[in-house]
Amino acid sequence: MEREVGTFRVKAGLAEMLKGGVIMDVTTPEQAVIAERAGAVAVMALERVPADIRAAGGVARMADPRIVREIMDAVTIPVMAKARIGHFVEAQILEALGVDYIDESEVLTPADEQYHIDKAKFKVPFVCGARNLGEALRRIAEGAAMIRTKGEPGTGNVVEAVRHARTVNADIRRVVAAPEDELGTIAKELGAPIELVREVHELGRLPVVNFSAGGIATPADAALMMQLGVDGIFVGSGIFKSQDPEARARAVVRATTHFQDPAVLAEVSVGLGEAMPGIEISKIAPAERMQERGW
């Protein structure tokens, strides 16, 4: 057997290895080291965390490759980076830099309002956001090897992540419960390929790992999402926009591992200082909600 690089199995396989772990947004090598020492399983290299992107407005793009490189040099854990939805050249650049995962992300300003990146073409795996099963399966059909809830990034408000996780779960329950001769119609309603709907029917879950992202700010938020059945946690602004990032990072990692153990959750939640300031979702105009980006 010849060596095969970039197979779907090694792409989806890395996400399997991240399960039960926390992936943290970082903007400097120093933050990346803090995240690694706290027990993060990977970091997301960014120029600005979502809360700052939201505050700054304007067009948000892929990070400066210099920042991505510095972060890759600073840690031994996997490094992810974000490309704009549909911006396949940003993705090509990130692949050339050697990042371990690309997030085709609604946190950045979309570059294409109609087409997502053809992710199967790349050797580097992609993670994409989803609000429901149809969206998740469309991304997987395009080649995504990992899914995350969209939530509402940069808000410190977990309500949208909960909504998206529960929606995916409800959609999956419906697909599992349906008789096989109804799967075609369900696929049509979901806007998803029938083969993937059949796979969900058989597996009883998404065919790839499903993390939670978008609004997680506390250890309790992380454990809540884990108890709702997600495989792991992305924390964006929640760590480095809080009063004591190091303590909070450690606490979120431990809460994700021991998500079913309230005694551990109580212990790790003590004395973390102020969480990031939160935003009520109804105060964000619908056009400014990042979760509406992509389809």
Binding site: M1, G6, T7, R9, V10, G13, L14, D100, Y101
Partner: peptide
């Protein structure tokens, strides 16, 4: 790195 991850006998 991940880019070089592979399958082989």
């Amino acid at each position: 790195r991940q880019r070089e991850s592979f399958e082989e006998a």
